[in-house]
Design a protein around this nucleic acid. Sequence first.
DNA 1: ATGAAAGCGCTAACAA
DNA 2: TTGTTAGCGCTTTCAT
Lengths: 351, 351
Amino acid sequence: MARRRNTVTIREVAEDAGVSLQTVSRVINDEPNVRPQMRDRVQSSIDRLGYVPSLAAQRMSGSRSYLILAINDRERTLADWRERTGTDWVDQMLLGGTLTCSKNGYRMIVELVDTHADHVERELGATVSALQPDGVILTPPHSENTQITRLLAERNIPVARIGSVEEGPGIRLTMGDEGAAYAATKRLIELGHSKIAMIAGPDQYSLSAWRITGWKRAMEEHGLATDGLCEKGDFGYESGTQAARSLLHRHTNLTAIIGSSDQMTLAALEVARDRGLHVPRDISLISFDNTPIVRFTQPPLTAVDQPIAETVSIAVEHLINLHKAPPVNEIIDVPAELVERSSTGPAPAAE
Amino acid sequence: MARRRNTVTIREVAEDAGVSLQTVSRVINDEPNVRPQMRDRVQSSIDRLGYVPSLAAQRMSGSRSYLILAINDRERTLADWRERTGTDWVDQMLLGGTLTCSKNGYRMIVELVDTHADHVERELGATVSALQPDGVILTPPHSENTQITRLLAERNIPVARIGSVEEGPGIRLTMGDEGAAYAATKRLIELGHSKIAMIAGPDQYSLSAWRITGWKRAMEEHGLATDGLCEKGDFGYESGTQAARSLLHRHTNLTAIIGSSDQMTLAALEVARDRGLHVPRDISLISFDNTPIVRFTQPPLTAVDQPIAETVSIAVEHLINLHKAPPVNEIIDVPAELVERSSTGPAPAAE
DNA sequence: ATGAAAGCGCTAACAA
DNA sequence: TTGTTAGCGCTTTCAT
């Protein structure tokens, strides 16, 4: 069975318009050296025939692939999806990414990449060879994986690294972590809290440290102690339970906790409840992420909203070179916002 | 600046192995007529050089594109993402789709397509021309959009239609809607309920009717009336509020509601609470979707879990022809499961 | 400002 | 069983 030709090619457009292939190509790519009259003629043929250039052919002839790769941690992402934890990180990436991509004729492809050292080079290398993307967006913890950044640099593929300020190839974007932690802490201080603890994320993620820094800065500015008030988790629920238990055990006069993820803060809420503490009357809680679920908990959590969509959108814009002359050494910091709900309130009167 | 060659091509592999391009091609595509010894030789060159075929080139030479398109309703999806309603439909599609795709060397690309009649043909036509996917997965309401199915059929692109049983091109998959509604209703009847209402989805979605059918069948089998017990919504929260109000207003002796989406059921929960009804003591609630948020509401909702990941995975398998001889006229029904939580309980004693 | 020719990396059809 | 040839649809030279 002969596979019928079923797409319009550049040749048909050229014939229809009575011009050469090149002229059509020039029109498609908005290149100079085409008279307006000619351009109109060709464009109308394109429209009438419904011609759309084949991505594959464009890529083949050495032009762009019009593909942007968004890379996420395989293990964590799969776990989130399988357990349906309600993390909408990927959705927000798609929101910011696909919209900006499609505005410019690009597509975004989500790829999951293992952090495991043996695989990463082969795995990502294969993906890049197959797809030949025009740009790659790296998210933590991949943003700081030198194996990955080196591989991409070798292949001359533009990179946007989200959540990293480390020197290295590509542009760097952060989501206001330090500032947000500072603002959250400050807000709690305004509410009269002075014993404010932090459940931080894992060291593997740079942003964990930035948030600690923001929290410490606010505390110190107000002459408040931070010793023993920081516990580390891995962003997951279980680790939040451990951290909250240990904090509440050590500090019976704790009146506020900032959790570096929704899951950990949710766990803290549960732990507080188990100990008979009422939120926010006895203890205030602020979370990081602002995933959908925190609006539905009892009480709904005050949370730092991660501007994922906006950040990814900006990353895409830079990758496809909308901003000519990329500020190579600059770091783009997209500010995060604090969304106040009912898990924060005035500090309880001192005993 | 000369763009440096930075990928290994089939030619280099051929030279390295001392064979022709064609032999390498045969090895790559696992074709017959290559002696094991030759195959090994070529394979080791491939491995050593880290060669991966270029998708674009493969596509160009008339073979597959190794791309599967997953199409969702643009407006609804964007709204869900922007409002962060917690719908993880796309995530579940990615979970089922990308895993099965990547196992077979394919990629899945998520596309948002407007339902609006004027656009759809141009829009989807352009995407298909550009990407030339090997298969397309359609979700409601696109699954039954004849403009779309016709377009894809004309271009000989294999289609999987989720949530449609209508005659037409491609394979059809459903997610056990009728059976699940039947099972949910039956469960409520077992719990002693007899006045069981339904908040259905919009007519635009076939599955809305299937769920009504399942509910009615269970009711009738037990000699229970259904008159005036079905209200229609649009799956959104607002419409759920309207529907629940109207139902509770008309039927003061209502003891159970089945909602055709999480958002509508959440709205019903709120309405019930406003009227001083305790869930599940005074009224039981069962939802459809089982998105992450329903585990965190008070009380957590009993819900019909939509097997999205599994369904999409099966769709992909068929599209890439893992199951030779596709059962063209068969409908694949992936059963949904009822997840019991705390929004269902025994019917209150009759007054 | 426009066109002709060459080639991107691969596979299909054919030849050996 | 293996190799050779001719494209796929497009963009790059380079001519005109």
